[in-house]
Amino acid sequence: MTQPFTLVVLGLSLSSSWGNGHATTFRALLRGLREDGHRILFLERDVPWYAEHRDLPDPDFCTLEFYTSLEDLRRYQPAMASADAVVVGSFVPEGVKIIDFVAAIAPKALCFYDIDTPVTLSRLDQGHEDYLSKRQIPLFDVYFSFSGGKVLDLLENRYGAKRAEALHCSVDPAQHFNTGEAIEWDLGYLGTYSSDRQPALERLLIEPARRLPDLRFVVAGAQFPDDIDWPANVERFEHLPPSRHASFYSRQRFTLNITRRDMIDLGWSPSVRLFEAAACGTAIISDRWRGLGELMPEDEAILMGDTTEEVVRHLTSLPETKRQAIAEAAHKRVLTAHTGRARAREMINAIEGTRPVLSHSIAVR
Results as ranks from 00 to 15, higher is better:
Ile285Cys: 13
Phe275Met: 10
His22Trp: 01
Gly32Met: 15
Leu33Tyr: 00
Val88Asn: 12
Asn20Ala: 15
Val102Gly: 06
Arg244Gln: 12
Phe248Asn: 05
Trp18Asp: 09
Ser170Ile: 04
Ala103Val: 00
Ala104Leu: 03
Pro356Cys: 06
Val218Met: 10
Arg216Leu: 07
Ser133Met: 03
Leu41Tyr: 00
Val92Gln: 07
Ser147Trp: 02
Glu156Tyr: 11
Ser243Arg: 09
Ala301Gly: 11
Arg216Tyr: 02
Ser250Trp: 07
Gly180Ser: 09
Ser15His: 05
Glu298Ile: 15
Arg260Asp: 07
Val171His: 00
Ala81Thr: 07
Thr63Met: 05
Glu184Leu: 10
Ala103Ile: 03
Leu14Thr: 03
Lys332Ile: 14
Tyr143Ile: 00
Thr259Cys: 14
Leu121Trp: 07
Leu358Lys: 07
His338Arg: 01
Asp229Ala: 14
Val8Ala: 06
Leu358Val: 10
Asp114His: 06
Ile258Gln: 00
Leu167Ser: 01
Ile362Pro: 04
Leu205Ser: 05
Phe224Pro: 13
Ser194Arg: 08
Asn157Asp: 11
Ala161Asn: 11
Pro173Cys: 01
Tyr249Asp: 14
Ala279Ser: 08
Leu7Cys: 13
Phe112Ala: 02
Gln77Cys: 09
Ala104Arg: 04
His176Arg: 05
Ala85Pro: 12
Leu7Trp: 08
Ala23Tyr: 07
Asp226Glu: 15
Arg313Met: 13
Ala327Leu: 02
Phe224Glu: 06
Leu154Ala: 01
Ser13Cys: 15
Ala174Leu: 13
Ala329Ser: 12
Tyr76Ala: 06
Trp185Gln: 03
Asp265Pro: 11
Leu154Val: 04
Ala85Trp: 06
Ser145Ala: 10
Arg158Pro: 06
Arg31Tyr: 05
Arg323Ile: 09
Tyr67Pro: 02
Glu238Ile: 10
Arg313Trp: 14
Tyr159Cys: 00
Asn233Tyr: 06
Asp172Met: 15
Arg197Trp: 14
Lys332Gln: 13
Ala200Lys: 08
Ala279Tyr: 00
Ala277Cys: 00
Ala51Thr: 13
Lys322Leu: 03
Phe66Ser: 04
Glu184Tyr: 09
Ser90Ile: 01
Leu215Ala: 10
Pro231Thr: 04
Thr316His: 10
Leu12Pro: 02
Ser271His: 00
Gly221Cys: 03
His360Ile: 10
Ile40Asn: 00
Gln136His: 09
Arg210Leu: 15
Leu190Asp: 06
Glu346Tyr: 05
Leu110Gln: 01
Leu139Gly: 02
Asp186His: 11
Leu70Ala: 02
Ala246Pro: 05
Ala279Cys: 03
Glu310Lys: 14
Thr6Val: 08
Thr63Gln: 12
Ile98Ser: 10
Val9Gln: 01
Ala182Gly: 07
Val234His: 04
His22Met: 07
Pro225Glu: 06
Thr179Gly: 03
Ala209Tyr: 11
Ser269Leu: 04
Met296Thr: 05
Gly149Phe: 12
Ile264Ala: 06
His53Leu: 01
His338Met: 08
Phe224Trp: 12
Pro225Ile: 08
Ile258Phe: 04
Thr316Met: 04
Gln77Tyr: 07
Ala104Lys: 13
Val96Met: 01
Asp265Arg: 08
Trp230Pro: 11
His176Val: 14
Arg197Ser: 02
Glu328Ile: 03
Ile264Trp: 04
Ala174Ile: 12
Phe140Leu: 08
Ile98Leu: 14
Leu73Asp: 01
Leu43Phe: 03
Ser271Lys: 08
Arg74Lys: 15
Phe217Met: 08
Ile302Tyr: 02
Ala278Phe: 03
